[in-house]
Nucleic acid binder design. Structure first.
Lengths: 205, 205
DNA sequence: TTGTTAACCGACCAGGCGGTCTATGAGGTA
DNA sequence: TACCTCATAGACCGCCTGGTCGGTTAACAA
Protein backbone atom coordinates (compact mmCIF):
# COMPACT_ATOMS: atom_id res chain seq x y z
CA UNK A 1 0.00 0.00 0.00
CA UNK A 2 2.75 2.38 1.03
CA UNK A 3 4.76 1.06 -1.91
CA UNK A 4 1.85 1.60 -4.21
CA UNK A 5 1.55 5.16 -2.96
CA UNK A 6 5.14 5.97 -3.89
CA UNK A 7 4.62 4.43 -7.30
CA UNK A 8 1.50 6.51 -7.87
CA UNK A 9 3.22 9.68 -6.67
CA UNK A 10 6.10 9.31 -9.11
CA UNK A 11 3.79 8.51 -12.01
CA UNK A 12 1.63 11.48 -11.10
CA UNK A 13 4.63 13.81 -11.04
CA UNK A 14 5.72 12.58 -14.45
CA UNK A 15 2.26 12.98 -15.91
CA UNK A 16 1.75 16.50 -14.55
CA UNK A 17 5.10 17.61 -15.95
CA UNK A 18 4.40 15.75 -19.18
CA UNK A 19 1.05 17.45 -19.73
CA UNK A 20 2.59 20.82 -19.05
CA UNK A 21 5.37 20.28 -21.58
CA UNK A 22 3.24 18.57 -24.23
CA UNK A 23 0.73 21.39 -23.97
CA UNK A 24 3.28 24.17 -24.24
CA UNK A 25 5.72 22.65 -26.73
CA UNK A 26 3.63 20.03 -28.49
CA UNK A 27 3.83 16.24 -28.19
CA UNK A 28 6.23 15.54 -31.05
CA UNK A 29 8.35 18.51 -30.12
CA UNK A 30 8.86 17.35 -26.55
CA UNK A 31 11.24 14.49 -25.85
CA UNK A 32 10.97 12.01 -23.03
CA UNK A 33 14.27 13.39 -21.80
CA UNK A 34 12.76 16.87 -21.56
CA UNK A 35 10.21 15.56 -19.08
CA UNK A 36 12.83 13.63 -17.14
CA UNK A 37 15.25 16.55 -16.97
CA UNK A 38 12.55 18.67 -15.35
CA UNK A 39 12.15 16.07 -12.62
CA UNK A 40 15.78 14.89 -12.35
CA UNK A 41 14.70 11.37 -13.18
CA UNK A 42 16.24 8.88 -15.56
CA UNK A 43 15.17 6.90 -18.60
CA UNK A 44 15.09 3.82 -16.39
CA UNK A 45 12.45 5.31 -14.13
CA UNK A 46 10.32 6.36 -17.07
CA UNK A 47 10.29 3.03 -18.87
CA UNK A 48 9.78 1.24 -15.60
CA UNK A 49 6.43 2.99 -15.19
CA UNK A 50 5.31 3.43 -18.80
CA UNK A 51 5.46 1.20 -21.85
CA UNK A 52 6.20 3.98 -24.32
CA UNK A 53 5.88 7.68 -24.92
CA UNK A 54 2.49 7.07 -26.51
CA UNK A 55 1.26 5.02 -23.56
CA UNK A 56 2.47 7.82 -21.30
CA UNK A 57 0.43 10.35 -23.23
CA UNK A 58 -2.72 8.24 -23.29
CA UNK A 59 -2.51 7.94 -19.50
CA UNK A 60 -2.09 11.71 -19.26
CA UNK A 61 -5.25 12.16 -21.30
CA UNK A 62 -7.23 9.76 -19.14
CA UNK A 63 -5.92 10.93 -15.78
CA UNK A 64 -5.47 14.65 -16.25
CA UNK A 65 -6.91 16.09 -19.46
CA UNK A 66 -10.32 14.45 -19.14
CA UNK A 67 -10.74 15.72 -15.59
CA UNK A 68 -9.52 19.20 -16.42
CA UNK A 69 -12.00 19.61 -19.24
CA UNK A 70 -14.75 18.02 -17.24
CA UNK A 71 -14.33 20.38 -14.32
CA UNK A 72 -13.92 23.43 -16.53
CA UNK A 73 -16.45 22.97 -19.32
CA UNK A 74 -18.86 20.19 -18.42
CA UNK A 75 -19.57 20.11 -14.71
CA UNK A 76 -20.35 23.86 -14.49
CA UNK A 77 -23.27 23.55 -16.91
CA UNK A 78 -24.90 20.57 -15.26
CA UNK A 79 -27.06 22.70 -12.96
CA UNK A 80 -30.78 23.16 -13.40
CA UNK A 81 -30.96 26.92 -13.41
CA UNK A 82 -31.17 29.09 -16.53
CA UNK A 83 -29.08 27.01 -18.94
CA UNK A 84 -27.81 29.78 -21.19
CA UNK A 85 -26.60 31.79 -18.21
CA UNK A 86 -24.75 28.73 -16.98
CA UNK A 87 -23.00 28.22 -20.31
CA UNK A 88 -22.24 31.92 -20.49
CA UNK A 89 -20.52 32.13 -17.13
CA UNK A 90 -18.80 28.80 -17.79
CA UNK A 91 -17.24 30.18 -21.00
CA UNK A 92 -16.52 33.47 -19.25
CA UNK A 93 -14.57 31.69 -16.51
CA UNK A 94 -12.73 29.40 -18.89
CA UNK A 95 -11.63 32.31 -21.06
CA UNK A 96 -10.69 34.40 -18.06
CA UNK A 97 -8.34 31.65 -16.92
CA UNK A 98 -6.71 31.73 -20.35
CA UNK A 99 -6.34 35.52 -20.24
CA UNK A 100 -4.53 35.29 -16.92
CA UNK A 101 -1.90 32.87 -18.19
CA UNK A 102 1.16 35.00 -18.73
CA UNK A 103 1.73 32.81 -21.79
CA UNK A 104 -1.20 31.02 -23.35
CA UNK A 105 -0.91 28.09 -25.72
CA UNK A 106 -4.57 27.78 -26.62
CA UNK A 107 -7.11 25.09 -25.86
CA UNK A 108 -5.14 21.96 -25.04
CA UNK A 109 -7.77 19.61 -26.48
CA UNK A 110 -7.93 21.28 -29.86
CA UNK A 111 -4.15 21.66 -30.02
CA UNK A 112 -3.76 17.94 -29.50
CA UNK A 113 -6.49 17.15 -32.02
CA UNK A 114 -4.65 19.22 -34.58
CA UNK A 115 -1.39 17.53 -33.76
CA UNK A 116 -2.59 13.93 -33.84
CA UNK A 117 -5.22 14.11 -36.55
CA UNK A 118 -4.33 11.72 -39.36
CA UNK A 119 -1.10 10.72 -37.61
CA UNK A 120 -2.14 8.62 -34.63
CA UNK A 121 -5.58 7.02 -34.70
CA UNK A 122 -5.24 5.51 -31.22
CA UNK A 123 -4.65 8.84 -29.50
CA UNK A 124 -7.31 10.47 -31.66
CA UNK A 125 -9.87 7.98 -30.36
CA UNK A 126 -9.26 9.17 -26.80
CA UNK A 127 -9.38 12.85 -27.76
CA UNK A 128 -12.55 12.41 -29.76
CA UNK A 129 -14.15 10.69 -26.83
CA UNK A 130 -13.68 13.87 -24.78
CA UNK A 131 -15.28 15.92 -27.55
CA UNK A 132 -18.18 13.50 -27.65
CA UNK A 133 -18.83 13.77 -23.91
CA UNK A 134 -18.67 17.55 -24.10
CA UNK A 135 -21.11 17.59 -27.00
CA UNK A 136 -23.56 15.23 -25.31
CA UNK A 137 -23.56 17.36 -22.17
CA UNK A 138 -24.10 20.56 -24.11
CA UNK A 139 -26.98 19.04 -26.04
CA UNK A 140 -28.70 17.81 -22.90
CA UNK A 141 -28.16 21.17 -21.19
CA UNK A 142 -29.88 22.91 -24.08
CA UNK A 143 -32.71 20.42 -24.12
CA UNK A 144 -33.13 21.01 -20.40
CA UNK A 145 -33.40 24.71 -21.19
CA UNK A 146 -36.09 24.04 -23.74
CA UNK A 147 -37.95 21.85 -21.26
CA UNK A 148 -37.71 24.52 -18.56
CA UNK A 149 -39.10 27.11 -20.93
CA UNK A 150 -36.00 29.28 -21.12
CA UNK A 151 -35.06 28.30 -24.65
CA UNK A 152 -37.30 28.46 -27.68
CA UNK A 153 -38.59 24.99 -28.52
CA UNK A 154 -37.72 25.37 -32.20
CA UNK A 155 -34.02 25.61 -31.42
CA UNK A 156 -31.87 22.79 -32.76
CA UNK A 157 -29.96 21.57 -29.71
CA UNK A 158 -27.33 19.64 -31.69
CA UNK A 159 -26.74 22.63 -33.93
CA UNK A 160 -26.28 24.98 -31.00
CA UNK A 161 -23.88 22.53 -29.36
CA UNK A 162 -21.70 22.26 -32.48
CA UNK A 163 -21.75 26.01 -32.86
CA UNK A 164 -20.76 26.62 -29.25
CA UNK A 165 -17.94 24.09 -29.34
CA UNK A 166 -16.67 25.52 -32.61
CA UNK A 167 -16.66 29.09 -31.46
CA UNK A 168 -15.06 28.27 -28.12
CA UNK A 169 -12.28 26.24 -29.73
CA UNK A 170 -11.71 28.93 -32.31
CA UNK A 171 -11.58 31.86 -29.96
CA UNK A 172 -9.04 30.09 -27.81
CA UNK A 173 -6.77 29.81 -30.84
CA UNK A 174 -7.46 33.42 -31.71
CA UNK A 175 -6.56 34.52 -28.19
CA UNK A 176 -3.08 33.00 -28.14
CA UNK A 177 -1.53 36.00 -29.78
CA UNK A 178 -2.52 39.64 -29.61
CA UNK A 179 -5.02 41.27 -27.31
CA UNK A 180 -6.55 38.19 -25.71
CA UNK A 181 -8.64 40.15 -23.25
CA UNK A 182 -10.15 42.40 -25.92
CA UNK A 183 -10.98 39.38 -28.03
CA UNK A 184 -12.48 37.62 -25.06
CA UNK A 185 -14.70 40.60 -24.36
CA UNK A 186 -15.87 40.85 -27.97
CA UNK A 187 -16.44 37.15 -28.19
CA UNK A 188 -18.54 37.03 -25.02
CA UNK A 189 -20.66 39.96 -26.20
CA UNK A 190 -21.50 38.13 -29.39
CA UNK A 191 -22.21 34.90 -27.55
CA UNK A 192 -24.67 36.75 -25.34
CA UNK A 193 -26.23 38.34 -28.40
CA UNK A 194 -26.54 34.93 -30.01
CA UNK A 195 -28.04 33.47 -26.85
CA UNK A 196 -30.65 36.20 -26.73
CA UNK A 197 -31.84 35.03 -30.14
CA UNK A 198 -32.36 31.51 -28.76
CA UNK A 199 -34.58 32.55 -25.86
CA UNK A 200 -38.35 32.17 -26.00
CA UNK A 201 -39.87 35.15 -27.72
CA UNK A 202 -41.76 37.19 -25.15
CA UNK A 203 -45.06 37.86 -26.93
CA UNK A 204 -45.06 41.60 -26.55
CA UNK A 205 -48.48 43.18 -27.14
CA UNK B 1 15.07 34.61 -68.40
CA UNK B 2 14.66 31.01 -69.49
CA UNK B 3 17.08 30.07 -66.73
CA UNK B 4 15.11 32.09 -64.24
CA UNK B 5 11.99 30.28 -65.32
CA UNK B 6 13.49 26.90 -64.55
CA UNK B 7 14.64 28.14 -61.19
CA UNK B 8 11.16 29.42 -60.35
CA UNK B 9 9.55 26.20 -61.51
CA UNK B 10 11.72 24.03 -59.26
CA UNK B 11 11.17 26.29 -56.27
CA UNK B 12 7.46 26.26 -56.93
CA UNK B 13 7.37 22.47 -57.08
CA UNK B 14 9.23 22.24 -53.78
CA UNK B 15 6.93 24.74 -52.13
CA UNK B 16 3.73 23.09 -53.31
CA UNK B 17 4.94 19.70 -52.07
CA UNK B 18 6.19 21.30 -48.87
CA UNK B 19 2.88 22.96 -48.08
CA UNK B 20 1.05 19.73 -48.73
CA UNK B 21 3.31 17.74 -46.37
CA UNK B 22 3.54 20.42 -43.68
CA UNK B 23 -0.21 20.74 -43.71
CA UNK B 24 -0.91 17.04 -43.49
CA UNK B 25 1.90 15.93 -41.16
CA UNK B 26 2.86 19.13 -39.39
CA UNK B 27 5.99 21.23 -39.83
CA UNK B 28 8.15 19.67 -37.14
CA UNK B 29 6.99 16.22 -38.09
CA UNK B 30 8.02 16.60 -41.74
CA UNK B 31 11.69 16.45 -42.65
CA UNK B 32 13.33 18.22 -45.53
CA UNK B 33 14.13 14.78 -46.90
CA UNK B 34 10.42 13.90 -46.91
CA UNK B 35 9.80 16.78 -49.29
CA UNK B 36 12.80 15.88 -51.46
CA UNK B 37 11.90 12.20 -51.63
CA UNK B 38 8.50 13.12 -53.04
CA UNK B 39 10.17 15.05 -55.86
CA UNK B 40 13.25 12.85 -56.34
CA UNK B 41 15.48 15.80 -55.59
CA UNK B 42 18.53 16.04 -53.38
CA UNK B 43 19.66 18.04 -50.38
CA UNK B 44 21.94 19.98 -52.68
CA UNK B 45 19.05 21.26 -54.75
CA UNK B 46 17.11 22.26 -51.67
CA UNK B 47 19.86 24.25 -49.98
CA UNK B 48 20.81 25.80 -53.28
CA UNK B 49 17.37 27.44 -53.45
CA UNK B 50 16.57 27.99 -49.76
CA UNK B 51 18.62 29.13 -46.79
CA UNK B 52 17.00 26.82 -44.26
CA UNK B 53 13.87 24.82 -43.50
CA UNK B 54 12.44 27.86 -41.73
CA UNK B 55 13.16 30.15 -44.68
CA UNK B 56 11.52 27.56 -46.92
CA UNK B 57 8.39 27.61 -44.79
CA UNK B 58 8.21 31.40 -44.61
CA UNK B 59 8.34 31.51 -48.41
CA UNK B 60 5.57 28.91 -48.57
CA UNK B 61 3.44 31.12 -46.34
CA UNK B 62 4.05 34.20 -48.44
CA UNK B 63 3.71 32.53 -51.84
CA UNK B 64 1.03 29.94 -51.28
CA UNK B 65 -0.80 30.14 -47.96
CA UNK B 66 -1.54 33.86 -48.13
CA UNK B 67 -2.98 33.53 -51.64
CA UNK B 68 -4.98 30.45 -50.76
CA UNK B 69 -6.65 32.12 -47.81
CA UNK B 70 -7.11 35.33 -49.70
CA UNK B 71 -8.90 33.65 -52.57
CA UNK B 72 -11.00 31.45 -50.29
CA UNK B 73 -11.97 33.70 -47.41
CA UNK B 74 -11.23 37.30 -48.25
CA UNK B 75 -11.79 38.01 -51.91
CA UNK B 76 -15.28 36.40 -51.98
CA UNK B 77 -16.63 38.87 -49.43
CA UNK B 78 -15.28 41.99 -51.07
CA UNK B 79 -18.38 42.54 -53.18
CA UNK B 80 -20.96 45.22 -52.53
CA UNK B 81 -24.09 43.12 -52.42
CA UNK B 82 -25.78 41.93 -49.24
CA UNK B 83 -22.75 41.42 -47.00
CA UNK B 84 -24.10 38.71 -44.73
CA UNK B 85 -25.14 36.62 -47.72
CA UNK B 86 -21.66 36.98 -49.14
CA UNK B 87 -20.04 35.80 -45.92
CA UNK B 88 -22.55 32.98 -45.67
CA UNK B 89 -21.85 31.56 -49.10
CA UNK B 90 -18.13 32.13 -48.64
CA UNK B 91 -18.15 29.98 -45.48
CA UNK B 92 -20.45 27.49 -47.17
CA UNK B 93 -18.00 27.05 -50.07
CA UNK B 94 -14.94 26.87 -47.85
CA UNK B 95 -16.51 24.21 -45.66
CA UNK B 96 -17.79 22.30 -48.64
CA UNK B 97 -14.25 22.06 -49.98
CA UNK B 98 -13.16 20.62 -46.65
CA UNK B 99 -15.97 18.07 -46.67
CA UNK B 100 -14.89 16.84 -50.08
CA UNK B 101 -11.31 16.17 -49.03
CA UNK B 102 -11.15 12.42 -48.59
CA UNK B 103 -8.91 13.17 -45.60
CA UNK B 104 -9.14 16.54 -43.93
CA UNK B 105 -6.49 18.01 -41.68
CA UNK B 106 -8.36 21.11 -40.59
CA UNK B 107 -7.77 24.76 -41.30
CA UNK B 108 -4.12 25.07 -42.33
CA UNK B 109 -3.72 28.54 -40.81
CA UNK B 110 -4.98 27.59 -37.37
CA UNK B 111 -3.01 24.34 -37.42
CA UNK B 112 0.18 26.26 -38.06
CA UNK B 113 -0.68 28.85 -35.42
CA UNK B 114 -1.10 26.06 -32.90
CA UNK B 115 2.16 24.48 -33.95
CA UNK B 116 4.31 27.61 -33.90
CA UNK B 117 2.76 29.55 -31.05
CA UNK B 118 5.35 30.18 -28.36
CA UNK B 119 7.97 28.24 -30.32
CA UNK B 120 8.89 30.41 -33.29
CA UNK B 121 8.13 34.11 -33.08
CA UNK B 122 9.33 34.84 -36.61
CA UNK B 123 6.93 32.42 -38.27
CA UNK B 124 4.15 33.51 -35.93
CA UNK B 125 4.54 37.08 -37.14
CA UNK B 126 3.76 35.97 -40.70
CA UNK B 127 0.80 33.85 -39.62
CA UNK B 128 -0.63 36.60 -37.48
CA UNK B 129 -0.37 38.98 -40.37
CA UNK B 130 -2.75 36.75 -42.34
CA UNK B 131 -5.18 36.73 -39.44
CA UNK B 132 -4.97 40.50 -39.25
CA UNK B 133 -5.77 40.96 -42.93
CA UNK B 134 -8.68 38.56 -42.66
CA UNK B 135 -10.01 40.44 -39.62
CA UNK B 136 -9.67 43.85 -41.25
CA UNK B 137 -11.54 42.66 -44.32
CA UNK B 138 -14.33 41.13 -42.28
CA UNK B 139 -14.72 44.29 -40.23
CA UNK B 140 -14.91 46.50 -43.30
CA UNK B 141 -17.37 44.11 -44.95
CA UNK B 142 -19.64 44.38 -41.94
CA UNK B 143 -19.32 48.13 -41.82
CA UNK B 144 -20.24 48.21 -45.48
CA UNK B 145 -23.33 46.19 -44.57
CA UNK B 146 -24.26 48.70 -41.90
CA UNK B 147 -23.74 51.54 -44.33
CA UNK B 148 -25.88 49.84 -46.97
CA UNK B 149 -28.67 49.38 -44.47
CA UNK B 150 -28.56 45.58 -44.38
CA UNK B 151 -27.03 45.30 -40.93
CA UNK B 152 -28.32 46.93 -37.78
CA UNK B 153 -26.27 49.99 -37.00
CA UNK B 154 -25.86 48.99 -33.33
CA UNK B 155 -23.90 45.89 -34.32
CA UNK B 156 -20.27 45.81 -33.17
CA UNK B 157 -18.32 45.09 -36.35
CA UNK B 158 -15.10 44.08 -34.56
CA UNK B 159 -17.04 41.77 -32.27
CA UNK B 160 -18.81 40.06 -35.16
CA UNK B 161 -15.49 39.64 -36.99
CA UNK B 162 -13.82 37.98 -33.99
CA UNK B 163 -16.86 35.78 -33.51
CA UNK B 164 -16.92 34.71 -37.16
CA UNK B 165 -13.22 33.96 -37.28
CA UNK B 166 -13.45 31.99 -34.04
CA UNK B 167 -16.37 29.89 -35.10
CA UNK B 168 -14.93 29.17 -38.54
CA UNK B 169 -11.56 28.11 -37.14
CA UNK B 170 -13.26 26.00 -34.52
CA UNK B 171 -15.66 24.20 -36.79
CA UNK B 172 -12.81 23.28 -39.12
CA UNK B 173 -11.10 21.54 -36.23
CA UNK B 174 -14.36 19.92 -35.23
CA UNK B 175 -14.90 18.64 -38.75
CA UNK B 176 -11.61 16.78 -39.05
CA UNK B 177 -13.02 13.68 -37.42
CA UNK B 178 -16.53 12.30 -37.40
CA UNK B 179 -19.46 13.41 -39.53
CA UNK B 180 -17.97 16.51 -41.13
CA UNK B 181 -20.92 17.09 -43.41
CA UNK B 182 -23.48 16.89 -40.60
CA UNK B 183 -21.44 19.31 -38.54
CA UNK B 184 -21.06 21.63 -41.49
CA UNK B 185 -24.83 21.66 -41.97
CA UNK B 186 -25.54 22.35 -38.31
CA UNK B 187 -22.89 25.01 -38.16
CA UNK B 188 -24.21 26.84 -41.22
CA UNK B 189 -27.76 26.77 -39.85
CA UNK B 190 -26.62 28.46 -36.66
CA UNK B 191 -24.53 30.99 -38.56
CA UNK B 192 -27.62 31.93 -40.57
CA UNK B 193 -29.65 32.14 -37.39
CA UNK B 194 -27.00 34.38 -35.85
CA UNK B 195 -26.90 36.55 -38.98
CA UNK B 196 -30.64 37.02 -38.88
CA UNK B 197 -30.22 38.57 -35.43
CA UNK B 198 -27.79 41.13 -36.90
CA UNK B 199 -30.10 42.36 -39.63
CA UNK B 200 -32.02 45.59 -39.31
CA UNK B 201 -35.22 45.01 -37.40
CA UNK B 202 -38.16 45.36 -39.77
CA UNK B 203 -40.58 47.54 -37.83
CA UNK B 204 -43.59 45.26 -38.04
CA UNK B 205 -46.98 46.83 -37.30
C1' DT C 1 22.15 -12.44 8.00
C1' DT C 2 20.56 -13.36 3.69
C1' DG C 3 17.52 -13.17 -0.17
C1' DT C 4 13.91 -10.73 -2.85
C1' DT C 5 12.04 -7.16 -5.24
C1' DA C 6 10.30 -2.49 -6.42
C1' DA C 7 12.30 1.70 -8.00
C1' DC C 8 15.68 3.91 -10.27
C1' DC C 9 20.26 4.85 -12.79
C1' DG C 10 22.73 5.91 -16.98
C1' DA C 11 25.55 4.04 -20.78
C1' DC C 12 24.36 2.57 -25.00
C1' DC C 13 22.12 1.81 -29.68
C1' DA C 14 20.15 2.47 -34.26
C1' DG C 15 17.96 5.67 -36.82
C1' DG C 16 16.61 10.25 -38.19
C1' DC C 17 17.35 15.20 -38.20
C1' DG C 18 18.99 19.91 -40.30
C1' DG C 19 22.69 21.46 -42.55
C1' DT C 20 27.54 21.45 -45.08
C1' DC C 21 30.60 20.41 -48.65
C1' DT C 22 32.79 18.67 -52.65
C1' DA C 23 31.91 16.76 -57.05
C1' DT C 24 29.62 16.62 -61.49
C1' DG C 25 27.43 17.56 -65.69
C1' DA C 26 24.58 20.34 -68.92
C1' DG C 27 24.35 24.58 -71.62
C1' DG C 28 25.81 28.81 -72.97
C1' DT C 29 29.87 31.82 -74.43
C1' DA C 30 34.38 32.93 -76.44
C1' DT D 1 38.03 23.50 -77.76
C1' DA D 2 38.22 25.72 -73.48
C1' DC D 3 35.84 27.82 -70.02
C1' DC D 4 32.32 29.25 -66.79
C1' DT D 5 28.09 29.25 -64.21
C1' DC D 6 23.74 27.20 -62.79
C1' DA D 7 21.48 23.39 -60.92
C1' DT D 8 21.80 19.14 -58.88
C1' DA D 9 23.84 14.95 -56.57
C1' DG D 10 24.81 12.51 -52.39
C1' DA D 11 28.32 11.41 -48.82
C1' DC D 12 29.06 13.19 -44.55
C1' DC D 13 28.75 15.56 -39.80
C1' DG D 14 27.17 16.36 -35.12
C1' DC D 15 23.22 16.16 -32.58
C1' DC D 16 19.01 14.41 -30.81
C1' DT D 17 15.35 10.79 -30.50
C1' DG D 18 12.70 6.75 -28.51
C1' DG D 19 13.85 2.75 -26.52
C1' DT D 20 16.92 -1.21 -24.27
C1' DC D 21 19.50 -3.32 -20.77
C1' DG D 22 22.60 -4.67 -17.11
C1' DG D 23 23.60 -2.72 -12.79
C1' DT D 24 22.56 -0.49 -8.10
C1' DT D 25 20.17 0.65 -3.91
C1' DA D 26 17.07 0.53 -0.09
C1' DA D 27 13.27 -1.64 2.23
C1' DC D 28 11.38 -5.50 3.81
C1' DA D 29 10.75 -10.73 4.70
C1' DA D 30 12.71 -15.12 6.21
Amino acid sequence: MDKNLKRMATMQRMQVTGLHLFYSKGYYNTSVDDVLKELSLSKGAFYYHFDSKEDFFVQIIENLLVRKIYSMLIEPIEGHEHTLDLICSCFENALETAVHNEVDYGFALSNFINEFNGRNAKVMKHLNEILRVWEVNLVSAIQRGKFNGHIDRHVDAEGVAVFLMSSYMGVRTLMVEMTPSARKYRFMSQIRHYFKSLEVKKTTV
